[in-house]
């Protein structure tokens, strides 16, 4: 096989890890709170700026800055829930979606206002790993590994802890959660924090590979939504698998054509699948 194609496939798998992480966060929030955060990728953008700021301006070590960004984005998630989502929890679902769409606009342009449209990078570049003739970016490998660990940790959390089981239960029957002694508002807040933290984690991984700019969310947001819909909104396993399918299409498509065309291909694939399996790849 063509060595470059092989490299593209490997890179696709590595990219899939980060996309899977994003899809997991979005699915978690949708599954528990029944809300789609359209601005999810913009939270990642905020996290990337946080790391950039703490590292480049205040000279924090990168690990500390990353940790702070995870907490910071978790905080943003909680704020988003308290200020935007919870006042309209009772209204039409589409209003909640549009309100977070407004947040997308807001965060994007706020970032433009604060940082300008320049591309910023933290100036940390990890070396390439050479495996025979193939070059693999160390930062991508790190991102992939961390994303997998994050996914496993989330899985354990959801299957082993009381809170995690309650989160899965809440999607099935909201009304009776109170009878189980579960305070829904508290679960929603925790979910928002966890969802935010996952976006923050994604930010830590992406900041090693990409420059930050106010519109970077658009590079990840739409594809993440496609992945979630493809996997079935709220279905974590479906989203996880769909992330790798989509990242393969993007990586291999990018190898044969251009990166923009590969996104178009991914979208066409998505539309075709919507014809065949409207409730997602792993419809129940």
């Amino acid at each position: 096989m063509d060595i470059y194609l092989f490299e593209a496939i490997i890179n696709g798998i590595l990219l899939g890890g980060v996309l899977a992480l994003l899809a997991l966060g979005l699915n978690l929030i949708f599954g528990v709170i029944d809300v789609v955060w359209i601005c999810y990728a913009e939270l990642v953008m905020c996290g990337m700026y946080m790391i950039f700021w703490l590292h480049s301006f205040f000279g924090w070590p990168i690990l500390l800055a990353s940790f702070a960004a995870i907490l910071g984005v978790a905080g943003l998630g909680v704020l988003l829930h308290l200020l935007v989502i919870s006042p309209i929890l009772g209204s039409a679902p589409i209003n909640q979606l549009l309100a977070t769409g407004g947040m997308l606009f807001f965060l994007q342009s706020l970032a433009t206002l604060l940082f300008g449209t320049d591309f910023r990078n933290i100036g940390v570049r990890l070396p390439l790993i050479e495996l025979g003739d193939i070059f693999i970016s160390y930062s991508r490998l790190l991102a992939f590994g961390t994303a997998l660990i994050g996914a496993v940790a989330l899985y354990l959390f959801l299957s082993r802890t009381y809170l995690g089981i309650a989160m899965r239960a809440i999607a099935q029957d909201r009304e009776i959660m109170g009878l189980m002694g579960v305070d829904q508002r508290r679960v929603y807040l925790i979910t928002s924090a966890v969802g935010g933290a996952l976006a923050g984690l994604a930010a830590c991984l992406l900041v090693l590979q990409y420059d930050v700019h106010p519109f970077i969310g658009l590079s990840f947001g739409p594809i993440t939504f496609m992945i979630c819909v493809l996997g079935g909104l709220g279905n974590m396993i479906g989203g996880f698998i769909a992330a790798f399918v989509m990242s393969q299409i993007i990586a291999v498509g990018g190898y044969y054509f251009s990166i923009e065309i590969s996104y178009v291909l991914a979208f066409v694939f998505f539309i075709v699948l919507m014809f065949i399996r409207p409730q997602g790849l792993l419809a129940r």
Partner: peptide, 9 residues
């Protein structure tokens, strides 16, 4: 745009 976004919400 910042104002649009905030107002939309």
């Amino acid at each position: 745009n910042t104002i649009y976004g905030a107002l939309l919400v």
